[in-house]
């Protein structure tokens, strides 16, 4: 290794260790898990579910079968809570190191700038995936303990047909993957801003700005021409993964839109970070 830039794996490993060693990471994930549990408790105590079609997607179905609850829980954290957490972690990625002064020492190790950026992205994705897994797991436990435990055979798709345990599992896994990937647009923007400013807060708020604007514009009829390009446009398409047969169109579009945002924003982040003066 002597005299050479380190392998990417080493840098990614260090990023993951740093994330894991940070209390904030676990507090955030804990809070993400707490919200669906609170919802589950309220549902089980009151047995009042939102009318079908109103409230967070899917919630009306979970009273009958708690095993559908993990997907519903992801639906609860998806619109606001999860993207906020992702924006904070991604916004902190480079700007946090700059503010702490550790950025220059990392680069002097030397950790190449491109490698560091890729490692930071891997860290953000790992955080998102860990949060999604944690929410799914806690929601499964809460669902089984607190909500309806009717046999799996009666767990139904939103189209009304029955689901086997196997089907339930892979569909839930697909939802987890889709929710994780849906966060990449917000993550990429926060990461770009994180390379532009030395303030982690500004970078995180910028990412949230995109989230809020996108949410507003998606709901605005006058923005119809733009709508299909907005990062939050297809976020709720995960529900289609519980239709029978699975309705792939919007899921695929959602992934394409995220991919487009990610390519453009990460490209800009890379172009900026690799040519920028580090004065922090």
């Amino acid at each position: 290794m002597s005299g050479q830039a380190p392998a990417l794996a080493a840098v990614v490993g260090v990023e993951l260790r740093k994330l894991a060693a940070r209390p904030r990471t676990w507090v955030t994930i804990g809070m993400l898990c707490a919200l669906p549990v609170v919802v589950a408790v309220l549902l089980s105590v009151t047995e009042v579910a939102p009318r079908p079609g109103a409230g967070p997607a899917f919630l009306s179905a979970v009273l009958a079968n708690g095993q559908l609850y993990p997907a519903a829980a992801l639906g609860i954290v998806l619109p606001v809570f999860l993207p906020v957490a992702v924006a904070v972690v991604a916004g902190d990625a480079i700007a946090g190191e700059a503010a702490a002064g550790t950025l220059r020492y990392l680069l002097l190790r030397p950790v190449g700038r491109t490698r560091l950026l890729v490692a930071k992205l891997a860290g953000v994705l790992a955080f998102t995936a860990a949060a999604v897994v944690a929410v799914t797991a806690t929601a499964w436990v809460a669902g089984v303990l607190l909500l309806g435990d009717a046999p799996v055979a009666t767990a139904t798709t939103t189209s009304g047909s029955a689901l086997s345990t196997g089907e339930l599992l892979w569909r839930t896994a697909l939802v987890m993957a889709y929710v994780t990937l849906s966060m990449t647009g917000v993550a990429a923007l926060s990461l770009l801003l994180s390379t532009l400013t030395d303030s982690p807060l500004a970078a995180a708020l910028g990412g949230l700005g995109l989230l809020v604007s996108s949410t507003v514009l998606v709901a605005l009829d006058a923005a119809q021409g733009l709508r299909d390009l907005l990062p939050t446009r297809y976020w709720l398409a995960w529900v289609d993964l519980f239709r029978d047969p699975v309705l792939w169109t919007d899921v695929q579009r959602g992934l394409l839109v995220q991919g487009g945002w990610v390519v453009v924003l990460l490209g800009a982040a890379w172009a900026n970070f690799t040519t920028r003066d580090i004065t922090s």
Partner: peptide
């Protein structure tokens, strides 16, 4: 240790 692991020496 963390800094050293980010770009391991010989």
């Amino acid at each position: 240790a963390l800094l050293d692991a980010a770009a391991p020496g010989p």
